[in-house]
Amino acid sequence: MSVRAPEISVVIPCLNEEEAVGKVVDQALEGVRRSGRTGEVIVVDNASTDRSAEVAAEHGAIVVHEQRPGYGSAYLAGLAHARGTFIVMGDADETYPVQELAPFVERLAAGDDLVMGSRFEGTIHGEAMPWLNRHIGNPILTGLLNVLFGVKISDAHCGMRAVRSDALPVLDLHSTGMEFASEMVFKAFRRKLRISEIPIDYYPRVGESKLNRFGDAWRHVKFMLLYSPSWLYFVPGLVLLFLGAVGAIVLAAGPVTVLGRTWQIHTLFACIFAVLLGTQIVQLGVFARAFAASHLGERDPWVERWRGRLSVEHGLAGGGVLLGIGLVTIVVIFANWAIDGFGALAHEYATAIGFTLLALGTQVILGSFFLALLTMRTTEPSRATVVERVPVA
């Protein structure tokens, strides 16, 4: 006889929360009852050294043991065991009102894919959130997520949220640390899932906090930057490249006087540095986006648009043109220098530009080969012919 799968799975990560986890399980079960649906509560014990797992089981939870440390590791293990159509996520320290999960489930049942709780739109009770977290940390991290990924949300790191089980394969979550919270949100927006927010109450935690304020914040920032090549690479790289190129073009023929000040070859060197550095940064951004699209399953319209239009040969041609112009410039200058008896080099500015073009051409050519390697398919579709087998009598 098959056991019918529950409609709701409440997944709660737990690390040494013996004092609070039993009450949280009771609240989650109460929330399931209030929703009028069937459900289960899964507590993921993340290598606790107290009786957290035993207490959770005594209160009716299914206990999953995950030895790999990390907030994300615990959730990945819990989500893998969840059988419900609607998955509600909360913490084991009594900070979130999991007994009020019904509105989250109703939003999912109405068609939303991810429903976020919002502590800032709701009520933060007492000293539940330290001043630094409330007024600096969370607003900055949420703001970064909104800017870098086009997210529109008020509390990106709220631990009470709900997701449809059929949305999990689309999200394809991998993070093992606190950055798991950011990954879920930005992937949901990037992959066009339906998202909404519900104001919630946030209460002071029971027991000792496991958060590392600055370490966890850095993990979030690092993760967001890694998944945002446009801001990490293209914005600073293009700014450097543009400013350097303009300056180099202006100074190519020699010193220039602007606003009563003469800009000479030292300024040209700075512009050349900006051009080379900017080109390298932009190139790294192209590599990052191409690799993510080819090997990490990320959909990137920019990569898809240009993949069919540009090839290694285009890169070789462009790099070859730069290399050729630079080489001709250098050859002509050194030929004149030799004719003049190898005296003082009179074309310092043009020489600097020529070597810059040589460097850029080489960079583009080698980068084109590397980009082709990054986007190369590791397996080819099989061309084997299927032969129908005739059963032997």
Rank of each mutant, 00 (worst) to 15 (best):
L145I: 03
W131H: 09
V163L: 08
L141V: 15
F355M: 07
T379Y: 09
H125C: 07
P229S: 02
M1Y: 13
F234W: 02
S230G: 06
G367Y: 09
P236W: 07
V392S: 03
T123E: 11
I265M: 02
L79E: 00
D93R: 05
V250H: 01
P169Y: 04
Q363I: 07
R191I: 00
A274L: 15
P199C: 14
E19Q: 11
Y227M: 09
R68V: 07
L243I: 15
F234E: 01
Q67E: 14
F104R: 00
V321K: 08
A253G: 12
A352F: 14
G72A: 02
R161V: 01
S118W: 01
T362S: 08
V3N: 00
E304H: 12
A47P: 07
L251V: 11
A245Y: 12
S73R: 15
R191D: 02
Y202V: 02
W231V: 01
I200H: 05
I136A: 10
G215V: 13
F223Q: 03
A292S: 11
E94R: 09
G324I: 01
H59K: 12
R261G: 00
E106C: 04
L232F: 13
V321T: 14
V32A: 05
Q27E: 10
H347K: 00
R191Y: 06
R377P: 00
P204W: 14
Q99L: 05
L268P: 04
S368L: 03
V25F: 10
P130D: 05
V11A: 09
G177I: 11
I124A: 10
W231T: 04
V246P: 12
R134N: 00
T351S: 15
A338H: 02
G70M: 02
A61H: 11
A359D: 08
H220L: 13
V3P: 02
L284C: 14
